[in-house]
């Protein structure tokens, strides 16, 4: 590629000759501006500007709100305040629903674990008796079995209590 071709393939940039100068100027400008915005004077000026804007616009805003409220009342339409109040109530309802949902999840989980214990119990009994027979031929007591049933009963009882509570 000749030099001329390379030059022609490079996109035309009107700022190219001034780039170095531009960057140096912007760096200096950036530093100066950072210092400027960090002064009490800037804070005071922007604060005053905002305050004036709000003071001047407040009467117009209030008049607009009042007239809008009257128009909406005349048209039997809900105002912004009415909608806001409704939305707040929805949020509260959502929270309560979320809590109920979480409680139901917990109950469901407990029920599942209780069921799995109940299902596992006969299988364990069968297992223990089939293992015991060939070993000695003597019946062995398994005192653990009735104890294992207790959590399942408790879970079922808790389930019943929870259901009563939710009613």
């Amino acid at each position: 590629m000749t030099e001329e071709q390379a030059r022609s393939s490079k996109p035309f940039d009107p700022l190219e000759p001034f780039r170095g100068m531009r960057d140096a100027y912007l760096d200096a400008m950036a530093k100066a501006m950072v210092e400027a915005v960090n002064t009490e004077g800037y804070a005071q000026a922007t604060g005053a500007m905002l305050d004036n804007t709000l003071t001047v616009s407040a009467p117009f805003r209030e008049a607009m709100e009042k007239s809008m409220l009257q128009v909406l009342e005349q048209l039997s339409l809900p105002s912004r305040q009415d909608v806001i109040a409704l939305a707040e109530r929805f949020s509260n309802l959502e929270m309560r629903l979320d809590d109920i949902d979480a409680k139901l999840d917990r109950i469901e989980k407990q029920r599942h674990s209780a069921q799995s214990v109940v299902q596992a119990e006969p299988a364990m009994k069968a297992n223990s008796s089939s293992k015991a027979k060939p070993a000695s031929g003597v019946k062995t007591k398994t005192p653990a079995a009735p104890k294992r049933a207790a959590p399942a009963k408790q879970a079922r009882a808790r389930h019943r209590t929870a259901r009563k509570g939710s009613r």
Partner: peptide, 20 residues
């Protein structure tokens, strides 16, 4: 903190802004 300077109660009325 530049933000702290801007948010200083001498210059910035937070209640007025939020009322608007």
């Amino acid at each position: 903190l530049t933000f702290a300077r801007w948010a200083n109660e001498k210059y910035f009325d937070v209640d007025k802004v939020l009322a608007a």
